[in-house]
Write a protein that binds this DNA or RNA. Sequence first.
RNA 1: GGGCGCUUAACUCAGCGGUAGAGUGCCACCUUCACACGGUGGAAGUCGCAGGUUCGAAUCCUGCAGCGCCCACCA
Length: 880
Amino acid sequence: MSRFNPDSVPSQFESKEAEEKWSRVWEGAATYGFSEQSTAPTYVIDTPPPTVSGSLHVGHVFSYTQTDVIARYQRMRGRNVFYPMGWDDNGLPTERRVQNYFHVRCEPGAPPFDVSTLQAADDDARKLAPRKLQRGAFIDLCVRLTAEDEKAFKALWQRLGLSVDWSQEYSTISEHSRRMAQLSFLDLFEKKHVYTVEAPTMWDVDFKTAVAQAEVEDREVKGAFHRIRFAVEGGGDFTIATTRPELLPACVAVATHPDDQRYQSLIGKNAVTPLFRAPVPIFGSSLVDPSKGTGILMVCTFGDATDVHWWREEKLPLRQTIGRDGRMAGVEFGVAAFPSRDPAAANATYTTIVGKSMSESRRIIVEALRDPHGSADRNGAPPLIAEPEPLEHAVKFFEKGDRPLEFVSSRQWFVRLLDQRDKLIEMGDQIEWHPDFMRLRFRNWTENLQIDWCVSRQRYFGVPIPVWYRLGPNGETDFSSPLVPEPARLPIDPTSEVPAGFAEAERDRPNGFTADPDVFDTWFTSSLSPQIATGWTQNPDRHRKLFPMDLRPQSHEIIRTWAFYTIAKAWLHEGSIPWKRVAISGWVLDPDRKKMSKSKGNVVTPMHLLDQYGSDAVRYWSLAARLGVDTAFDEKVLKVGRRLVVKVYNATRYVLGQEASAGPVTHPLDLGFLHQLQGAIAAATAHLETMDFAQALDVIERFFWDSFTDSYLELAKGRARSESDPAGRSSAVAALRQGLSVLLRLLAPYLPYVTEEAWSWDFAGEARTSIHLTPWPEASELAPLGTSSEHAEVYELAKGALGAINRAKTQAGGTVGRHVASLTIAAPPKVLALFARAESDIRAATRILNLERLPTADGPQFDLGTLVKTIELAPAPERA
RNA sequence: GGGCGCUUAACUCAGCGGUAGAGUGCCACCUUCACACGGUGGAAGUCGCAGGUUCGAAUCCUGCAGCGCCCACCA
């Protein structure tokens, strides 16, 4: 029998030392390793790859710990847990960091340069123009810088005790991930789920790239209605209202509601725009809201999505005046594409805005509209008939952008999703969502999809689109039959590698080929996280074993991106759902209930909290919150967690320090306690099965404090060191150890450090088996002891009596340590019989010297508040 | 404009059809031989508002209000 000496361990739990010690042990022993050979059922987690260029804050700790508790629970349940960690380093945030840090810019045509010795730019270097780098070299720098960020995250994860299998690490820009993303494209290409088209696309003028619907957000901005008079060919005029007068040169039509009496007669006629004197058709459309503005409006290429719609439906001409840089492009009026009744005047006006930004152009155009000579009829009042009328309206922005999106006609690659909408909704319905209402977010988004997924980005740090195009005899690009590489060549960069059958010399030459210069949307790669982690076609057996996965944890604001695209990819590639369950974590809010974000400056960083309270306490805070619920950061909860950790440590020291050996559990109180513990195991397990780790923690914690340390431990204490009752003593010691073993295991997924430390003192045995690889407790392991609900009654009565007597003692002016000279209790015979079975334990715990029992009449219910009839305290002990 | 969630003690949150709960904080007492990061006890809430269903509602339904989130064709 192994004897534990409480004096052999520190009297205080040293979190930091325990964290360092056990992290090392776990890593050395590959405690959390996934076994490729094991035939045990798997549990596979699609861990969110954090954006490593972002800041670390308690929100990360919160959500990743919530996943870890599930991983640990499933591991203890005997599952072969596959819990990888990915890093999302691909994309714009990294590009921006690298540009600043090294003072470089990516330019695909730049001369080769060896970046291996390049250091962070100093002040001298910054005085020069940024160094221009080829895409490959630029990507090398991105990889280098993000490797540093990944180290910081990994250190945090290990400190927190995430039970990740670190041999399954991946990053979204790694060669493997690029290969997977390009394979995905080839598969979609073959299945004809992707297409390229030149079309008006939402465009960010600062990043100079197309963006997808999912990356767009509406923001309320200040604007103004400008009421502008248009002439009608053949006589007459009308007034439109617009917030974007700078688009006047791009006006291609005028629209009004077909039933609007005011303008009905105009439909079919031509209007003439002011300033530019372009004749444009007037048409009717039910999309026009007669109550908005003046009920008649100009259609431009392109002011908004409705303009795009009308442009397509009415087959209107394209007059793209907005350049890709968000400035007015150079166009000429008086030609077929830009007709004008007065080209000279039109060009004179247009010249004043060429190269100007949208806001500058607006100012200039508004000034011109105040001039009477701008009017279409050449002799009337100014076209601007009133001062601009300020209003607030919603404008579309790229979520990472600062200026409104423009619709710019450009060639982009799209994944066809609109034709899959019903199937995608069906897939979403096959998945379990936690909490369930998050399902609606997915449904809502999917039902309201407006456009296919634009996956090409005019950026550099990303996975290249693996495509070339043939060039015709005059150097014209043939987009109709793109050239794609053989899968074995992936990953490739088409800007530096050549398609089969061509030589480098033929690049960008007539009859040669040209590379697609773009990269994929980062979600194109991130949405393959399940395939990247399993190996997919590179490792089909493994993929079959791990896919579909069991759990996708993520936050709610990326349901329309990450969850949606992952579901779409799994469906398009494999006709399957990617995972069975999605767990949506809430946000961590600052104490004012605002979301923590770097830009708001209200971010709480986690490291000092880990130092101050210990990982287990920080985990406790994370795990006391329910899935999907936003939680205000509250340091008080960390204190509560810390308290629990300390209590676990000390209770274990005490129980394992009992000197008697464990014998058969025979005493009714002990059996009753274990019976109640069986109930707690069942309840906690049921909650964890439905992902309700917070509820399970509540059950476990409550039992630990209320039933174990505050009640059973106090009641069994005396007997556990009794000299006169050896059988009762070994029964108590055995039950205390049993109870502790179960409670430590129930708490292990929540508090991995203190439970491992406590477990190691004795329970780990000769093999030093980690508590985290020990089976999750089951009610049945306590069943052979012969517990019963009758014993439970004894235990509950004893627990209640302990409380009632303590209350009486306090009210009589005594304290717990004070002896009770005599006590009279009154209760029905049945209750007194239960009392008698635990009497010596109750008397020892409450220090009763003389006890009298008064039987009362049997009632339907007995109130323990009436148990104590009289109490007489012994004299207070003399103080030294 | 549509959808979803939240609103319970001073604070942070459980409970979601059967006599209002926890922890923190507050008050009183206590160095009791695991633990003062402790122990014992106490005070503290018309469960957002208004209707309805029910023998019974914090819990179900309807409406309203406040807060938050997601979404929506920017004239």
